[in-house]
Each structure stands twice: as structure tokens, then as C-alpha cells.
């Protein structure tokens, strides 16, 4: 199975940048957008999954986000920032989904999930891959149980704190982009990160002191 995680615009001299792919897409080259999908789908799904804690919903939101991004491509001010823009769409659609809003597209995802359908945060960790390095000591020591605990802890955070933690601490989006996505200020994002981190510290106290 391929893992298409080429970073935006830094994948080598022969690969087009995100900006070039966006421009090619707008010029009518459909395959250029397919490359953007391959390039960003894993990160998009990771963001959605961490916000939703459910792989089935995360896959649907990911697909929805790419459709909406394609339809809205002409509204993207800076094509080089496609990745961050897409993540904002993913984050917003994920939150909408979490709030129970009806989704706008219905695409089959059942057969693309590797570990069963509609997996919860607790169950998916058994069939999931951690995003960290394979030789990371945390992974080796804690593995799946650690992932499950973290997902459950994230799920206990209020919406804004979870979004801030996921997008900033985990996905390392710039705070100004997160502020746009959350329709708030950078200062508010800092505060939500802080509050989320405080709660995670309480929830994961035993892990923090064990390590």
C-alpha cells in the first residue's frame, strides 16, 4: 500500500509544488488535483480522526473536504497554502459532523477502511498505525494502549480545546491558521491550547509520571 505523504512543495525538484498543482487544476488539468489528494489525504484523515475519534466518519469527512476544496479552489488566495487551507476545511467539517450536522455528500467508504467500519477511538487503536517514528520509545513501550488512552483523553476535551490541541500541538498548524479555522483570535487559540493541555495533564497524570 502506498503512503503518499509528500510534504507540500518540498518533495524534490521533479515534483510540482502545491501551488503549481493548484494552478494546473484551475487551468483544467484534473490529474493535478488527484496528485494533491494523494499528497494530503493521510494528513487530512489524521486531523479528522483525531477530532472525531471514529475512522468511518473521518474517512467520509476527508472525502467531503476534498470535494469542497476542489469546488472552492478559485477562492484560495495563496495556492502554496493549499495544505493549511484544506486542513481548515477538514477541521470545520469534522466539527460540523461532531455536532451532528448532516453531511453533504454520500460516498462509499466501507471498503477502504482497513480495520473495520465505524471504529471507535477505543477499538481503532488496535488496527491503527501511529504517526510517529517507528523507533520512538513511547511507541515501543506503550504502543496501542497508549494511542487508545490518548484518543479517549482528547475526546474528553471541550470542542475548542480539542481542535486547538489537535491542529497546533499534533498537526503543527500555525496558530494564525487555526484562529481562522476557529473563527477566533490567536490569543484565544493559545488559551485553548493551554486549557486543553491542562486537562490532558489531569487525565493522563499516570502516564506523565510513569514515563
Amino acid at each position: 500500500m502506498k503512503d503518499n505523504t509528500a510534504s507540500a512543495g518540498n518533495a524534490g525538484a521533479l515534483l510540482p509544488t502545491d501551488a503549481q498543482l493548484v494552478e494546473q487544476t484551475m487551468a483544467g488539468k484534473r490529474q493535478a488535483y488527484d496528485e494533491l489528494v494523494r499528497r494530503h489525504q493521510r494528513r487530512a484523515l489524521a486531523v479528522s480522526y483525531r477530532l472525531l475519534g471514529n475512522s468511518h466518519d473521518a474517512a467520509e469527512v476527508t472525502q467531503d473536504a476534498f470535494l469542497k476544496a476542489y469546488a472552492s479552489l478559485r477562492t484560495l488566495d495563496d495556492p502554496q497554502r493549499f495544505g493549511g487551507w484544506l486542513m481548515r476545511i477538514v477541521a470545520n467539517l469534522s466539527l460540523n459532523r461532531r455536532r451532528g450536522r448532516k453531511r453533504t455528500t454520500a460516498l462509499p467508504v466501507d471498503d477502504i477502511l482497513g480495520g473495520g467500519n465505524g471504529q471507535s477511538a477505543a477499538s481503532v487503536a488496535d488496527s491503527a498505525t501511529a504517526t510517529g517514528r517507528a523507533d520512538d520509545p513511547y511507541q515501543q513501550l506503550e504502543g496501542k494502549e497508549l494511542g487508545r488512552r490518548l484518543l479517549e483523553a482528547l475526546d474528553q476535551l471541550p470542542e475548542k480545546q480539542r481542535m486547538a490541541i489537535v491542529l497546533f500541538t499534533i498537526n503543527q498548524m500555525p496558530q494564525k491558521d487555526i484562529a481562522k479555522a476557529m473563527d477566533s483570535s490567536v490569543e484565544a487559540v493559545k488559551w485553548h491550547v493551554f486549557q486543553g493541555r491542562k486537562k490532558l495533564r489531569e487525565i493522563l497524570k499516570d502516564l506523565i509520571t510513569e514515563q
Binding site: D3, V37, R38, Q63, D111, I112, T131, Q211
Partner: peptide
């Protein structure tokens, strides 16, 4: 912890991108 240990669901990435396309 949250940067290295959070899981991502296994997907057939080729199939996902093909479906989106």
C-alpha cells in the same frame, strides 16, 4: 506523547484517492 503516539486508521490510500477523484 500526543505527537508520536496517536494512531491513524489504516486505509487503502490508493482506493481512497481513487474514490475522491
Amino acid at each position: 506523547l500526543v505527537q508520536v503516539a496517536l494512531p491513524v486508521p489504516e486505509m487503502d490510500w490508493d482506493k481512497l484517492s481513487a474514490q475522491i477523484s
